[in-house]
Design a protein around this nucleic acid. Sequence first.
DNA 1: AAATCGCCCAACCGCAGGACA
DNA 2: ATGTCCTGCGGTTGGGCGATT
Length: 326
Amino acid sequence: MVRTPCCRAEGLKKGAWTQEEDQKLIAYVQHHGEGGWRTLPDKAGLKRCGKSCRLRWANYLRPDIKRGEFSQEEEDSIINLHAIHGNKWSAIARRLPGRTDNEIKNHWNTHIKKRLIKKGIDPLTHKSLDHSETLPDKSIGHQEDDDQKSNNKKSLGPSSARFLNRVANRFGKRLDHSALSDIIGSGGPFTTHTTPTTSASECEKSTSSLSTPNSSNLHIIHDATSLSSSTFSNDTSAQLVYDNIFDDVEDMTGFSSRFLNDIVSHDDEDLLMLDESSSDNTLFMKELTMILKGDKTETMSFNDSHLAAINVVDDYSFEGIDNWFG
DNA sequence: AAATCGCCCAACCGCAGGACA
DNA sequence: ATGTCCTGCGGTTGGGCGATT
């Protein structure tokens, strides 16, 4: 396999870094900050290409890097996150403080992958390698076969349920869980089934904009990580539901459709742009709360009660929000 | 002791996409 | 609208090193 060098310039060093080079790089970054990698080597007196410097810093020299063995907890997280994100190592790394994407990728390829295969689990699909059954492994994530997908959709019922799930996920990331439960009461979708899965990744960026409905009863949570551990269930079977939900946008109508499309189709943006200071936000949340508390609910079980109740609301129940929205 | 094998992981590569002129 | 620069990402490589023969 022939490769062209990443850096065209002659005389640039490649391969392992020396201590001296490390020191130069550290000193430069500490003084000037990260960035400007292209010009950094010259300024720092390094005979390396900028890319190499960036990699060295990001994967090895950064002060916040946690070195050493991966804990069991970290490995579990990696498996779960891989089930959600696939080989999106940077996305996984963002959720494992102190670990780099490269480190996680290496650890996956050299340890976890093999271990999963040994256990008879396909590391790609997180399913049993013999295809006879889906393992009850907690790392099972978004990749399912079509049959199961269609079954899930079937049992899910009206599109509004999907919509509500998404709303629950979306808002659940921003709102204090217990506060919301107080409003909605037990059994509401916020109480048991919001998960740090797909929606968590969607929300990770969205939390930064803090376009949060305003209410004295609703507390904004800024830290998505804490939400992952405390606010949301670890029941990954729920992830399956949500991922199915997220796949299905076509049959949405009216408000839910617009709402969903906004949320679903733009992972990188927070399009639920409600002005934090606006009283409309409170109105919106009241509407939403009323719907979530609505009489027209039914309990839905999923896959032998992997899931507890999810409130399902018929589409016409969205009329209020629909009108409000638009 | 020397040769070979296999694993690990730091580093490299090409590519995609955003920012900017 | 286009081209260039720059950064970040995921896939891959290859050197180091311990284990085995």
